[in-house]
Design a protein around this nucleic acid. Structure first.
Lengths: 106, 106
DNA sequence: TATACGTGCAACCGATCGGCTGCGCAAATT
DNA sequence: AATTTGCGCAGCCGATCGGTTGCACGTATA
């Protein structure tokens, strides 16, 4: 059970579910109507997404509405930040190099 | 062979490789030194990352330096944009609701 | 109360994953 | 010319994935 957010969004069906639920909370049956997959398989996906805190279930009678926990998406953004920072750093170094070359020309 | 970028970054080792290569291009042997994994397994990861255009090999004699293609990372960002937009839209609708309530109070 | 509905869980199964070893090949070194 | 080095590829294997079916259980409806 790896169950981290990156493994969660690796599956195309799960990504599609996230997009669906971004618009509005839905029940497993309602979600399943959008795919060529049995409801039970959708349930499996919902479990995985819930386990890594991307979704939260809200019971209403015998129905369960799953809603997106958008905040969790930030984790992906945070990971991407590493690269933004590293690249920024690279540009700074490039600037220094260019600056040095510029000075040497004098 | 799914070989899309989300499946590529699902594996923790591959994510670590990407971070390593963000700092500087490296050879498979050099990368392997950072993990408890045989070089051949690293090569497999490099192949997957290259196939979905996250890395590019640069041959130098008998050595091959793999370098990060940072631009490809934007694809993840683009996917995240969907949610940013949907949430933004939600807030607008919330604003409208609040505005309506406000007006009704008059 | 009996029946239908909405759901989650368990067990199964073929495909894929992510390690491994054992090559072969080209470049560098001796 | 022989050896070492750096690498990718092929094949193996146990674990996991993502689908399936067949339940069991609580909630609504007749």
């Amino acid at each position: 059970m790896r169950r981290d957010i990156f493994q969660a969004i690796a599956d195309p069906t799960r990504r599609a579910i996230l997009v669906l639920l971004a618009v509005q909370a839905m029940t497993p049956n309602a979600i399943a109507e959008h795919f060529d997959i049995r409801r039970q398989s959708i349930s499996k996906h919902l479990r995985i997404l819930s386990e890594c805190d991307l979704l939260a279930p809200r019971q209403e009678g015998r129905e369960i509405f799953y809603e997106l926990k958008i905040d969790k998406m930030k984790e992906i953004d945070i990971w991407l930040d590493q690269f933004r920072k590293i690249m920024e750093e690279s540009f700074k170094q490039l600037d220094e190099v260019l600056f040095t070359i510029k000075n040497k020309k004098k």
